[in-house]
């Protein structure tokens, strides 16, 4: 589904990703862990096409398409979803309006008929329910006045509505309370654990992985994947820390 090969990227002329390679197949759930400042969010933003994140080398192929040839909205329409570490507040624009237009923009570019107001609301209500989010919150301006955890939950509602093929979820677990973590974990499974979909979870802690069992765990340090393993790698990292595990690789 996604094949990243020797990716190099800079932010403000500073090299952050330094030859990162990763292959994600349909049906797989991958987790990326790694120290602060390693480049995890940079990877997500670079794949999403955020302005200011410049690809200086390597490639990323998404379902046969060169990802970097596409504008951000085209990547979304192709089935890429980016769950933000810090979701952005947009005053004056309601979630309902924003998401309905987004869903229909994606559908249009795929040659599908737009959702009517009623169809959209039904879909939104169903996904909000799945994430146990009060539908009234979706009538409010995008993320404005939402608590940290509510913003993350709203990201998952958006994912449910937009129904992507690949979700890159940047620290979706941070800011969630214990119950919300379970609800979001179950939500990710319900929406994304399918044979034709895939997930890349960026996280610092094992706790989300208790609910969303990864098939592969990778350690990203200094702009590269320095170690990969199965679900047990996350447990070892939690016990021993990055330094010990990463050094063992270098040795």
């Amino acid at each position: 589904m996604l094949e990243i090969n020797n990716l190099q990227a800079t932010v403000a002329d500073k090299p952050i990703l330094k030859g990162l390679s990763l292959t994600i197949n349909a049906g797989e759930i991958h987790a990326i862990m790694g120290p602060n400042g390693a480049g995890k969010s940079t990877l997500g933003y670079t794949l999403g096409g955020r302005p200011g994140y410049e690809v200086t080398g390597g490639s990323a192929t998404f379902n046969g398409q060169d990802l970097f040839e596409l504008a951000p909205h085209e990547r979304a329409a192709a089935g890429l979803f980016l769950g933000f570490q810090y979701p952005v507040e947009i005053p004056g624009v309601s979630f309902v309006q924003f998401l309905r237009e987004s869903a229909n923009a994606q559908r249009k570019s795929r040659g599908e008929a737009p959702l009517s107001g009623g169809e959209f609301l039904k879909l939104a209500r169903e996904k909000a329910g799945l994430l146990r989010m009060d539908m009234d919150m979706l009538k409010r301006p995008v993320n404005v006045g939402f608590s940290g955890g509510e913003k993350k939950r709203a990201e998952m509602v958006q994912m449910g509505i937009l129904d992507p093929k690949l979700a890159i979820l940047d620290e979706t677990d941070s800011g969630l309370d214990i119950d919300a973590l379970r609800v979001c974990g179950e939500g990710i499974n319900a929406i994304m654990r399918k044979s034709d979909k895939a997930v890349l979870l960026i996280t610092h802690y094992q706790r989300l992985l208790d609910y969303v069992k990864p098939d592969f765990v990778h350690v990203l340090a200094a702009g590269r994947i320095v170690k990969s393993g199965g679900a047990d790698l996350a447990l070892r990292l939690e016990e021993e820390g990055y330094e010990a595990v990463v050094q063992e690789t270098a040795a």
């Binding site: 504008a71 951000p72 952005v88 924003f98």
Partner: peptide, 20 residues
């Protein structure tokens, strides 16, 4: 970028913010 990452075209994203 947030709006476009959900699938809105650049003019749609701008229009939505300017409407508000």
């Amino acid at each position: 970028f947030y709006l476009m990452s959900r699938g809105l075209t650049p003019p749609q994203a701008k229009r939505l913010m300017l409407q508000a």
